[in-house]
Structure formats: C-alpha cells, structure tokens
Design a protein around this nucleic acid. Sequence first.
DNA 1: TAGATTGTTAATCGATTAACAATC
DNA 2: TAGATTGTTAATCGATTAACAATC
Lengths: 240, 240
Amino acid sequence: MTARTSAESPRGIPEATVARLPLYLRALTALSERGTTVCSSEALASAAGVNSAMLRKDLSHLGSYGTRGVGYDVANLRYQISREIGLTQDRNVAVVGLGNLGQALANYAGFRSRGFRVVSLLDADPRLFGMTVADLQVRPVADLEAVVAELDVAIGVVATPAEAAQEVTDRLVAAGVASILNFAPTVLSVPEGVDVRKVDLSIELQILAFHEQRRSPSYAPTISTTPAARGAVAVQEEGR
Amino acid sequence: MTARTSAESPRGIPEATVARLPLYLRALTALSERGTTVCSSEALASAAGVNSAMLRKDLSHLGSYGTRGVGYDVANLRYQISREIGLTQDRNVAVVGLGNLGQALANYAGFRSRGFRVVSLLDADPRLFGMTVADLQVRPVADLEAVVAELDVAIGVVATPAEAAQEVTDRLVAAGVASILNFAPTVLSVPEGVDVRKVDLSIELQILAFHEQRRSPSYAPTISTTPAARGAVAVQEEGR
DNA sequence: TAGATTGTTAATCGATTAACAATC
DNA sequence: TAGATTGTTAATCGATTAACAATC
C-alpha cells in the first residue's frame, strides 16, 4: 500500500506500529472525553481493539511514557503520540477530482479537526470551475502546479477517474508533493521517497464477498467447469 | 481490520492473498481490454504492483491455472479469480447514513459494475426521508430489519456518525447481515463469524503525516518537552 | 511490604522472497 | 531439443503474542 521499501521508518518505528498509532490516539481521546486521566495498557488496548501486549510493544517504540503499577497518563500519552505522528503541525491538502467522492472528501470534517486543511479543489471539467464546495471554489486542474506552490500543499488527494490518476500524480510529485492519498482504482507508480496510500472501496467489498461466499448455503467447495462453460461467463470489471 | 481470528479462510487461502486477488482481477481486466490473451507472472505482477514470486504463490492457492513455459490465459484466470472471490453471484448492499460520504457511496459506480447492488438507503434524519439518491428513496433507519429481510441484504455499509455506528451494526448483525463495511471512525465489536472491514480516511491521512514529518526540514529527531509545556498543547481528535 | 502493571525478552506465527526443479 | 516460465520449496524477514523481571 505504500511506496516505502523498508518496513521501518527512519526513526525505527515499524510500519505496522505507525498504522496503529492513530487508533490509540482516537481511543485516548474517547477516554479523555469521559474524564479518564489514567489508564492501563489493558484498558487502552481494549478501547482500540488490539491485544495489550501489542499495545505495550508499540508504545515502547516511542519511549517510556507509562508508570509501572499505575498505567499511562491519558493527556500525556495523547500528546506524545500526536507529536510522533506530526499532528502538532497543520498540513495543507489539495483534492483533485470533484466527483461525488471528491466532494464528500472536501466536506469531510474529520480532516480539519485533525490538522489537515483542505486548501484547494481541482478538477478537469470546466462545468465545475468556480463551483463552491466546502467554502472553496473549484479550480482548473491546469492550475495544479501553481496551487501547490502558492498554497504550500503537502498532501494530494487523488479522487479522479482511474484514467487520469497517474498523470495527476506525476504532476503532483513533480510539483513537490510527496504524500498522496489515492482513491482511484488503479496502481500508481511513483519515484522513491514518495508515499502513496490507497483507499479502494470496491476491493474492500470484494474481500467481504470472499468471506460471504464461504458462509452462504449455496457454496460448493469445488465447482468443476469446462473451458467451454467458462468462456460463456462474462466477468465484469472496472468502470468506477 | 477483520473479525476473523485465523489468518486463513476455511478453504485455506491466507488473508493476505485474499486481499490481493481483487488487485489481480483488476490487472487482468486491464490486460484483457488491451487485447492481451496470455500473460506471464512477471507481466501480471508488474501490472498489479507486486513481486512475481508473490503472485505465483498467491495463485498457487487457487489451483494450477498457468502453463509452464507459456504463462496464464487471461480470460480463464480472470474467471477463476472471480469465482474464488464469489463475484459470479450478485450481492445486495444497504447503505446506512446518507451524509456526504454515504451519498457518494450510494452513487459509486464501482459497486454496481462488480456485482454489488445497492438496494436500500437508510438514515435517522427525517429531513432525508423520501429523498432520492442514486434512484433510491432514503428510508428511516427504523425500517432496517424489515429492509434486510425483504431485500435480502448481504452487506451493510455503515456511514453514520461514530456515535451511531455500534447500534446500527448491532441491528444489522441481529437482522442477519454478516458482512459490514465500516466508514465510521470507531471500533466496532461484533460476534464471532461476522466480518467487519474498516475504511478510515483520517487514519490514512495520519499515516501519511507521520512519514511527511520525517521529510520536512523542520523535523527535529528529539524534542524535549517539560510536563508543563505539554499540558499547554491542545490536541484535537474526532469530530467527523 | 504486597499488588499492580509496565517494558522487554523470547517464542511463535505468518508473510514475503529467492531459487530452482518440473514441465510446457 | 533449447528456452521459457510455472509451481513449490526453503530461507528470510517482520509482526504478534506470551511470559516475566523490573519497578512503581
């Protein structure tokens, strides 16, 4: 899912751990809102939906922020994780592609509340130019390079059709954007050092379908099909 | 991300492999559309963005569909993977929560083209009742149980605010839905045998932010902060 | 001190990759 | 037959988990 080759970040935190830090942060926030000031690894792990041994191992990569026999100070641990992730600093986001999904993303409140500022919306369709979404006017994708430079864009969200995604990504990267969140159903190739994360709705559904199939009563473990019979089945794909 | 405890499906296909099958399917479709009828593991792996050894290992779990010295028949492999995933059968999907994201999901063309039929839209807000989205009328979430039974819903998409997600999930599960795609930023607890997959936009952004931070020039490997200084920093979380 | 809970070590487990014998 | 490429084995690597000594 990511362009990094190593499983460890430069500072030595395993990718699997990095992916769970936001989960811990969320759980800590929930505890904090309920007035909890101290919690055990057991309680926090349960709130985050993981094993407590894993939680302690993960946290040990950040430092020693707990107290033996007591637990973790909720406010402090929350701050330490935020800092580790880099949420103490705001980051500017540009959304490219203002279809249904792009518009929903532009409006997504979860971005802003976590230090991600959507500062620009870009699309290739002239009919959308000037349209206001989430208090921003949609600009032509031709302005991409100018927008990245002017507005100091750090993260690009690609919500274009699959066919346009690679070109948009190339231009984002060339303009200096090194973090891409890709919603287009396509594999992006990027140079070393650029980070791509992929969110693919139809792939998630297909994984569910796989398990679903193994539950349904009509499921037969072995289906023999002749090559001729196979040819008769139309398999659909793509389309977005 | 999933409620299954074992890493293997009943039929013995590792979860990591299952998660890549849709990728291979997509790559095969692209090859097919370009007129390619046969391809090597090398070519397919490159199109899917994975190592060719991993691709061959993954495919070996399904059976022996390649020809040594030649490669794979694109149409046949595509059919075999579709069948394995269970895409040869249509599945009915209900979307609960018709905010920006829910509406975008209801309109998402990638669902229908892959055998997922959105058959019902549900929301708790009376102002949305009767509104038409993607040719469907929004119904009260109170109708959930009736809708699942009447329309044979196999997959529930939860796009509600975090606070409502667990209750909606409980009701979906009680009504017989065993596959849940969760977009709400919260951990769902479900009984054994129910499959939950989670798509969390803000977590993806936070993972990008982590790597982004390690690139930016202002990044200092060790920041010493006193407990007092920490207390002064407001860390925001949640909000959706 | 006795009880609780962290941080870490060691064991286990699964996933990835390289290499190559089988075979078209 | 010679060349190509699969399917599989074995090696490596990373991630998870159990267990416990350290210590509050």
